[in-house]
């Protein structure tokens, strides 16, 4: 299997890019809730102290204040761990931000179970599900530092509410400085026509590993980075359902309400095909090394390969 070079954690790439953007965009203000050293917003705070506000451990106040700032023409970036910002301030996001479709950028770190040792209270396995309930939010999960950098630079250009999930551990490098992405797009990394594998964030490299393993077995898979979860890239999904025998989706999220469930719903309406989903099945995770947790919850390359083979063998 390919050895991946580990790059920066995506949360760090976020903090660094944000600090760069501060110069170009005087409207950017950054809000954090006593986790700026983890989310890396502290870098912006050191450079632009007059536009950085640490709200203390008070997520609801922070989120509603972001709404007020956005309503006053600022571009607030609001950060904390995904669990605390989204789950604690869910209703504040709903009314204050979604209710007025305000230009707030929520960038939350510690998405998924790759958080590791801290245990379930800090591991967000439901952020995507929760954020997709907000009408017209754009949801992006960049896979590595380069994708993150692009995402942060790009999102400022779009005056709309955005949710971006970043991760805790160092992220395998998939892209480079010059990779071209498209806002609200997805990226096809391998063009095979047998079976499709979809992923995003810190499991994307597993899809690529699975692709290589399948190649050795004579199966050509199509690998798509669904870095935009919402709006759903329907065209790409339709093509995959028409041109390949089926779709495997692997994600670091609950199966209920994750990308897999969105894809399954859309395609069962438009062009039913075989779909296999890999994710966390109705559970919270626990303490452990990220790899141990991935293994326990079935987020493995082997599992992707097996599901792809099941699709190829015309089984159910």
């Amino acid at each position: 299997m390919r050895e991946w070079n580990l790059g920066k954690p995506t949360r760090q790439a976020y903090g660094e890019t944000l600090a760069e953007l501060g110069e170009e965009y005087p409207e950017i203000v950054v809000l954090d809730a006593d986790l700026s050293k983890s989310t890396h917003t502290y870098i912006f705070g050191e450079k632009f102290p007059e536009r950085f506000f640490n709200f203390g451990i008070a997520e609801a106040n922070m989120v509603s204040a972001a709404a007020g700032l956005a309503a006053s023409g600022k571009i607030p970036f609001c950060s904390s761990f995904a669990c605390f910002m989204i789950n604690k301030a869910f209703e504040q996001i709903r009314i204050g931000v979604a209710g007025s479709r305000l230009n707030v950028k929520f960038v939350a770190s510690h998405g998924g179970i790759s958080v590791g040792e801290d245990g379930f209270t800090q591991q967000s396995v439901e952020d995507i599900a929760l954020m997709t309930t907000f009408p017209e939010f754009t949801i992006v999960v960049p896979a590595d530092e380069f994708a993150t950098k692009w995402t942060i630079r790009e999102c400022v250009k779009h005056p709309e509410p955005v949710y971006i999930r970043t991760g805790r551990p160092r992220a395998p490098i998939i892209y480079d400085e010059n990779t071209k992405f498209e806002w609200k797009g997805t990226k096809t990394l391998e063009k095979g026509e047998d079976v499709t594998i979809i992923s995003y964030g810190l499991t994307l490299h597993m899809a690529l590993d699975a692709h290589n393993k399948l190649l050795k077995k004579g199966i050509k898979s199509r690998v798509i980075d669904f870095y935009t979860i919402k709006p759903l890239d329907e065209e790409t999904l339709l093509k995959a359902s028409e041109e390949t025998k089926g779709i495997v989706i692997i994600e670091e999220h609950l199966l209920n309400g994750g990308l897999g469930s969105m894809v399954a719903r859309f395609l069962s309406d438009k062009n039913p095909c075989k779909i296999k989903t890999i994710g966390i099945n109705d559970a919270y995770a626990e303490s452990g090394k990220p790899d141990e947790l991935f293994e326990k919850f079935g987020l493995t390359v082997e599992n992707v390969v097996q599901k792809a083979e099941e699709i190829m063998s015309n089984g159910r």
Binding site: F120, S287, G288, K289
Partner: peptide, 16 residues
């Protein structure tokens, strides 16, 4: 503490 499978989770976890 904090190891995979331990009842001593990183934060108090009544399930374990």
């Amino acid at each position: 503490l904090r190891k995979f499978g331990s009842p001593l989770q990183g934060h108090p976890d009544k399930r374990f």
